[in-house]
């Protein structure tokens, strides 16, 4: 069964955010299904929908984002998509 998760990236806009975040996903064989980003007053927000095979890997993936978070001063969250469906769709 296909499971999808939402990766959200928030931080100060700078060169290389998308490159570095997507590299982590690529190295973990995560396919990106959708991607959108905005910049509001120098504040970068990116949200990606990714295809994950095994939800129990999420914790490990979160850890792999830690170096990127530290290097670029970002906040990166991964959450299963179901929580958004539950909250925003009847």
């Amino acid at each position: 069964m296909q499971r999808r998760a939402v990766v959200s990236v928030v931080g100060k806009d700078q060169v290389g955010i998308i490159a570095k975040v997507t590299t982590v996903l690529y190295k973990n064989e995560m396919n990106i299904l959708d991607i959108s980003q905005t910049i509001l007053q120098d504040f970068f927000t990116m949200i990606m929908l990714i295809d994950i095979k095994d939800p129990s890997n999420l914790e490990a993936l979160q850890e792999k984002f830690e170096p990127v978070e530290k290097e670029l001063g970002l906040k990166i969250n991964i959450q299963l998509e179901d929580v958004f469906q539950a909250m925003h769709r009847v």
Partner: peptide, 13 residues
Amino acid sequence: MPIAFTEIQETIR
């Protein structure tokens, strides 16, 4: 219906 950008932002906020 796909989840909108703003809805995801709302949950995260």
